[in-house]
Simulated scan of single mutants.
Amino acid sequence: MIDYFFAGYTKINIDSISKETKLPLHIFYPSDIPEKLEKLGPFQLDLAVDATPKNGNYPLVIFSHGSGSMPLLFRTLGQYLARNGFIIGMLEHPGNNRVDNSLVDTVDNLISRPTDLQTAIDWFWETSEFKSILISETVSLIGHSMGGYSALALAGGKPTPLPQEAADARPLILAKDPRVKSIILLAPATVWFREKGALSDIDIPILMYTAVLDTFTPKMPHAYIVMEGINNTKQIIYREVENAGHFSFMSVYPNELKSAALPPSQDPPGFNRQDFLDRLNPEIAEFLLKAI
């Protein structure tokens, strides 16, 4: 695809449903204000920070990061989609991020993650400055690792907690959001949908990638759970990425930050993450456009 816009960027904190905590939200969007190199935490990226959004009618995408992770590890995906006419909100899940991981391995986390996504969607359409330039009642979800769980849960999946999360594991009753029109799963974590019928209510296009050398969420069982649990398998496009690892879907780390002690900065020997992302990002954008 060809870049048509400059990538605007802003960060805000929105109220959670309980109002007891804030949801940090990184927003990438089309603008006609030229970009310049900006510092985002430990990273740098060409962006038009706090620029006025360009008038238009754009699809909304919500991104969910993995357990104990952060949204800016996918910053170049946000930049790419904004340049190509999408508005994407990348939220940081309270209690399951790199700074505060207090909800890991809890039922509360299984409930709050899809609720966070729904809160962000509601904010965009109800109170944000972007609501007038969004395609109404349509949203796509992208999730990496545990973010894949979040996307499937909000789209109608019925998760069952793992034994370490609940001694008496029963399926959770979560709200399905009918506004979700497509899902992209990147090395998804899906074992909470292992029970028969857990994904049977999902009937929307799904683009799913797994990494051949992924030791965290390997194809078996994670991708198989999706492929066997979705009734209409024609809705699934599946890609298996040769020689890739679990973190190969993330933006490339600056050389000065790469370290064997920092797994997200590492790939299997011989794997070129930048070359892969140069192919992946256009595939994601093409799928999202077809799913509108």
Rank of each mutant, 00 (worst) to 15 (best):
Y4V: 03
Y4Q: 13
F5P: 05
F5R: 07
F6H: 15
G8E: 14
T10N: 13
K11Q: 15
N13R: 06
D15H: 12
K22C: 06
K22G: 10
L23G: 08
Y29F: 12
Y29S: 02
P30A: 11
S31E: 11
I33E: 15
P34I: 04
K36S: 15
E38T: 05
L40D: 06
D46R: 05
D46I: 00
D50R: 12
P53V: 02
K54P: 00
N55W: 03
V61K: 01
F63Y: 12
P71R: 01
F74S: 07
R83N: 14
N84I: 04
I87M: 12
M90N: 02
E92P: 04
N96K: 00
D100W: 01
D105R: 09
I111E: 11
I111G: 05
R113Y: 10
P114T: 13
T115C: 04
T115A: 15
D116T: 02
D122H: 15
S132D: 15
T138K: 14
G143M: 09
H144N: 10
S145V: 08
S145E: 07
M146L: 14
A151M: 09
T160A: 04
P161I: 07
P161W: 11
P163I: 09
A166I: 00
A167K: 14
A169E: 06
L174E: 02
A175Y: 10
K181L: 06
S182P: 03
P188Q: 08
K196P: 00
L199E: 04
I202K: 00
D214R: 06
F216P: 01
T217M: 03
P218L: 10
H222K: 07
G229H: 03
N231G: 07
N231R: 14
K234C: 09
I236K: 09
V252Q: 05
V252D: 13
Y253F: 15
Y253N: 02
L257I: 00
K258E: 13
S259R: 01
P263M: 08
P263H: 06
F271E: 03
N272Y: 03
Q274R: 04
L277N: 02
L280F: 10
L280A: 00
E283H: 02
A285V: 00
A285S: 11
F287I: 03
